[in-house]
Every structure is written in structure tokens, then in C-alpha cells.
């Protein structure tokens, strides 16, 4: 399993990324206890009178190992902070535009100006997008243009170096 944000290799059962702290998508095994617990909590709120901790423990203890009861409590918190901002808020769009920005600028400065500028514009669009789909689409285009730019640049560079050595060889060096 790899972190969805930074790509760091993680254990398959990791709940958070060890590098950047991003909460990993809870799997089925971890999701069920969470739901169970929330329902238990709801029941707690409704029926305040017969609040019995021992009974609670019996409800979910067979399903999971003794260490987990504390861990699943944390994942729902970041999830609510992610989902609560409305689409107008940029917080709901989770894109990492920085790599594309750097890539576009490298393209722009080092080889293919037009493609680098197009890549930069699409990266900007991704940064301004209000929905996740829009941002992904813009980043995809930025990636395509930058990829074309980089590949063209590398091919041209190699061709010129080959030409250079070819002309040197033909001159008898």
C-alpha cells in the first residue's frame, strides 16, 4: 500500500501515512467498527438512562483486536473536515499542483517555451478549479503538454549531441 498523497510505502493496515500524516482510506475491516461505534454513540445519546459501558464493550469486542478501539475513533474527524467545506471553498479540492508548476517552469526555461507556458496555464487552472473533477482534468492536460515538451526537449538535445559528435568525427578528430 502506498500513501495517496506523497507515495510513501506503508503497511497494508496503516491508518495514517507515516511520512505526511494523511489519513488513509479506511478499509472494510476498519470501517465496520467505526460505524458500529457511531451507532453505539447515537444510542448513547438517545437512551441516556441505561448507559452501560460493560454492555458497550460486549457489543464490539468480538469483532476487533483489543488495541484497535482507540484508533478508529480518529479517522472520522479529518473526514468531516474534508467534506464539510462547500464546493465554493478550495479546501474541498485536493490537488497537488506544485510538481506540475515546477515541471512547467523547467520546460519553459530549459526547452520548449510554448508547451511550458501551456502547461503552466493548465496548472494555474487546476489551482483555481472549484471541483475535484475540473482540477484533475486540468492537471491531466498539464501533464500531457509537459510530457510532450520534455520528451521533445530530450530528443532534440540527444540529436544535437549526436550531430555534434558526428561532425567532429567527420572532421577527423
Amino acid at each position: 500500500m502506498y500513501c495517496t498523497k506523497c507515495g510513501a510505502p506503508l503497511n497494508d493496515d496503516a491508518k495514517f501515512c507515516t511520512e505526511c500524516g494523511t489519513p488513509m482510506e479506511p478499509k472494510v475491516s476498519t470501517e465496520t467498527p467505526v460505524e458500529k461505534e457511531t451507532t453505539v454513540a447515537k444510542e448513547e445519546n438517545v437512551e441516556v438512562v441505561n448507559n452501560n459501558p460493560v454492555e458497550e464493550q460486549q457489543v464490539y469486542s468480538p469483532q476487533m483486536p483489543p488495541q484497535t478501539p482507540q484508533a478508529p475513533q480518529t479517522p472520522p474527524q479529518p473526514q468531516t473536515t474534508y467534506t464539510q467545506p462547500t464546493p465554493q471553498d478550495r479546501g474541498s479540492v485536493n490537488v497537488n499542483t506544485t510538481p506540475f508548476l515546477v515541471w512547467s517552469i523547467i520546460n519553459l526555461v530549459a526547452c520548449c517555451l510554448p508547451l511550458g507556458i501551456v502547461g503552466l496555464v493548465f496548472t494555474l487552472n487546476a489551482g483555481k478549479a472549484t471541483t475535484q473533477a475540473e482540477a484533475d482534468e486540468a492537471l491531466k492536460k498539464a501533464k500531457i503538454f509537459n510530457l510532450i515538451g520534455t520528451i521533445t526537449g530530450v530528443v532534440v538535445l540527444l540529436l544535437y549531441i549526436l550531430l555534434f559528435f558526428g561532425s567532429m568525427a567527420s572532421m577527423g578528430f
Binding site: 478550495r90 497537488n96 499542483t97 489551482g127 483555481k128
Partner: peptide, 14 residues
């Protein structure tokens, strides 16, 4: 794994 830190650009900075 990512060992070196790098700042993230906001839309305004970009």
C-alpha cells in the same frame, strides 16, 4: 520516500 521538504504553492503564488 520523500526525504526533502518543499513548499506548496498556493494559487495566488502561482
Amino acid at each position: 520516500r520523500d526525504v526533502l521538504p518543499f513548499f506548496n504553492f498556493s494559487y495566488k503564488q502561482m
